[in-house]
């Protein structure tokens, strides 16, 4: 999930009877499947939670450009390079769709940017891992975008209209991302021994962090209940993680790669795989800002923002000058 551990402000889920009439009417609209739109009344907690969740999601798209941007200049062919460039450009677009949804809730773009740059807002833990070889571009597309799709498809039905509509656009584009990753993996897995080895190595490194993308286990996910009542979270973390594993294992088998989990076993009774939990200590450590690439990611974002200041200011000055000339001509 691109928004892990979104802290809610609520104090547990209220029943309809405990709510004031306005909040009750709001909850009843959500229960009936109505969409909430920007100018509608909404509880403060709903607004705040959504800003955090959509903001975190947007930041993930933006920071998520960095691990892949790392390989644009070193893609093995011109075609691969053009494809990767298009994919990274899509991620920027996804960030923008989401920022624009967050802005309808009253958070300005500059505020959100500022909170990312000074570390007050988070992005997905997955983007704090390095991309060491070209095979990592395959693993990221296949696994990371695969996990993101798993989470984003149900969010197309989320209760907040602008968020749901952003998700529809994103999901349409995301499937290209996963396929391009799988395509890289297929080429590597059918290649030389060295290429197969690279593919397996990338898979080994990205499997655990991909499972972490869905957030902590349900029993440790204290904020889920309210978000699910508000329909800004549609499935539990464990449910989505299970679905991801069940979908990915046969794909790995097709590639001839070994899932790096000795406890992986088909469970006929539940109709899904048994698998080991990822290293949750590592997850919480990464969230605290101790990921292998956290410092580099934040430095890169800050540098891009600072280096671009003269462009932003210059364009604004140009626009003001043009406007003044137009007024003078009239």
């Amino acid at each position: 999930m691109y928004a892990q551990m979104v802290k809610s402000t609520g104090t547990g889920v209220k029943s309809l009877d405990e709510m004031e009439p306005q909040e009750r009417a709001f909850q009843e609209r959500i229960n009936a499947g109505d969409k909430i739109e920007p100018k509608d009344w909404m509880p403060e907690g709903y607004r705040k939670n959504l800003i955090r969740q959509i903001g975190q999601h947007a930041h993930s798209e933006i920071v998520g450009q960095l691990p892949e941007g790392n390989w644009i200049t070193r893609a093995p062919t011109l075609e691969r390079k053009a494809i990767l460039l298009a994919k990274v450009q899509d991620e920027a677009g996804h960030g923008l769709y989401l920022y624009c949804a967050a802005e309808t809730l009253g958070a300005t773009r500059d505020e959100l940017t500022e909170m990312l740059l000074d570390g007050r807002m988070k992005y997905s833990s997955i983007f704090n891992y390095p991309t060491l070889t070209w095979a990592d571009m395959g693993a990221v597309g296949w696994l990371v975008d695969g996990a993101a799709i798993m989470n984003q498809v149900p969010l197309q039905r989320t209760s907040y209209g602008p968020y749901a509509r952003a998700m529809v656009r994103i999901c349409k584009e995301e499937s290209f991302h996963q396929r391009q990753g799988f395509d890289i993996m297929m080429t590597m897995a059918k290649g030389t021994d060295a290429q197969k080895h690279m593919a397996q190595d990338a898979f080994n490194r990205f499997w655990g962090p991909s499972l972490m993308m869905f957030g902590p286990s349900d029993e440790n996910s204290v904020h889920s209940a309210q978000s699910m009542a508000w329909k800004i979270k549609m499935n539990s973390n464990d449910e989505l993680r299970q679905k991801f594993v069940d979908q990915t294992v046969p794909q790995a088998e097709y590639l001839g790669l070994t899932v790096p989990d000795e406890n992986l076993k088909w469970n006929e009774e539940k109709g899904g795989y048994n698998f080991s939990q990822p290293d949750w200590d590592e997850f919480f450590d990464v969230l605290r800002g101790n990921g292998p690439e956290t410092t580099e990611r934040m430095e890169a974002r800050n540098k891009a923002w600072d280096d671009g200041a003269w462009v932003r200011d210059g364009m604004m000055a140009h626009a003001a000058k043009k406007k003044a000339m137009k007024v003078a001509a009239e």
């Binding site: 450009q89 899509d90 677009g93 923008l96 769709y97 624009c100 773009r109 140009h318 626009a319």
Partner: peptide, 20 residues
């Protein structure tokens, strides 16, 4: 929606953001 300094840039940005 999107941010842009003027109408001309708004259209250019819209091309990049919404018509890829």
């Amino acid at each position: 929606s999107l941010h842009a300094p003027d109408a001309e840039m708004a259209i250019k940005n819209a091309r990049d953001v919404y018509t890829r």
